[in-house]
């Protein structure tokens, strides 16, 4: 009875998630590089077996925040700062954190001189795990990440998607309880991204806690139980994706491809209807909570020139972080 078992497990997981204390807890984190403030007073907590996604434009401080969790970046000394990952403070005991975690950094940094299998075996040595466990784990992970056929392939010959999967496999060698991924699918094609999302969802269902950064809204929406939107070193919004959408932005969107249609649309809405307008070049976007208002707006517009859709994280993201590019983008 696999179905019955699954619902029981998921129920138990739900209960334990609510009851248990967070695996990662950070409050009042600060980090600067010279005079540049990379992270300013960021706080968050991640509960076991959940996925938290950090969203933000380049330079928002997402990667730096991740790096402080495993000792790749040293936070500024600040009286208020509290950091805990498992039962360790990464500022003083990064090795204990890393022994129980898996890290997928932003850059592809496989050992290009070694083949797929050797990359895993070599990396496993760093954990000091028993030989039989390592061999079993390598077989399992190559299968899990669908890299079995590439076992003896040179790392250089792998496609971008395969390299990324191998790096994720490498981060899973120690069967971690926490997986930290920095932009895991940036630059990959849609199929590969789907496969990676599926694997990450699978890991989450097995109880792995996942922390990831991304600038793909769909990635955050697909995977995350909790989203932290960062901009200019600060947390702008935080919460479950659906709740964020419900509480912070109008629920429906009308996109006009051509700005010339705008006057007709606004006349169509009538005098007392509420809507909000945003413009990006030729593209005009109307937001409203009442879909009927937006439908009325389309009455005088050709069907090719508009798109009616529910609001998504990208709209919220743009509303929260502002449209203009920052100096690091």
């Amino acid at each position: 009875m696999p179905i019955g078992r699954f619902s029981v497990t998921s129920f138990l997981r739900y209960i334990s998630t609510i009851m248990s204390k967070p695996i990662v807890e950070v409050s009042h984190l600060y980090k600067s590089f010279g005079t540049f403030r990379a992270v300013e007073d960021v706080s968050f907590a991640v509960r076991p077996s959940t996925c938290a996604a950090f969203l933000g434009p380049n330079g928002a401080g997402k990667t730096t925040t991740m790096k402080t969790l495993y000792g790749r970046a040293v936070p500024d000394v600040h009286d208020e700062t509290r950091m805990r990952v498992f039962d360790f403070d990464p500022r003083s005991d990064e090795l204990s954190v890393k022994a129980k975690s898996g890290v997928v950094p932003q850059e592809d940094n496989l050992d290009v001189e070694l083949n797929v299998e050797q990359n895993l075996r070599n990396y496993a040595t760093f954990y000091g795990l028993p030989h039989e466990f390592i061999e079993r784990q390598i077989d399992y992970l190559l299968d899990f990440m669908e890299l079995g056929a590439k076992r003896r392939a040179r790392t250089r010959e792998l496609s971008g998607g395969m390299q990324r999967r191998l790096i994720i496999a490498r981060a899973l060698l120690n069967d971690p309880e926490l997986l930290i991924l920095d932009e895991p699918t940036t630059g990959l094609d849609p199929q590969v991204r789907q496969v990676i999302w599926e694997k990450l969802r699978n890991l989450k269902h097995r109880g792995v806690t996942i922390l990831l950064t991304t600038h793909y809204m769909d990635e955050a929406f697909q995977l995350a139980d909790n989203v932290v939107i960062m901009d200019r070193a600060k947390t702008v919004l935080e919460g479950p994706p659906r709740q964020l959408l419900a509480e912070n932005i109008e629920q429906h969107v009308l996109e006009l491809m051509n700005a010339r249609a705008a006057p007709a649309a606004e006349r169509g809405a009538g005098d007392h209807a509420y809507w909000r307008k945003d413009q990006l070049g030729e593209r005009i976007i109307y937001y409203a909570n009442d879909p009927q208002v937006l439908r009325n707006m389309t009455s005088g517009i050709h069907a090719h020139d508009y798109l009616l859709r529910p609001v998504n994280l990208e709209d919220l993201f743009i509303k929260a972080t502002g449209r203009s590019l920052n100096e690091l983008q």
Partner: peptide, 13 residues
């Protein structure tokens, strides 16, 4: 190659 950056994801300082 960023080999060191990769190794720093494991329990090495």
């Amino acid at each position: 190659d960023k080999v060191y950056q990769g190794m720093l994801g494991s329990p090495l300082s």
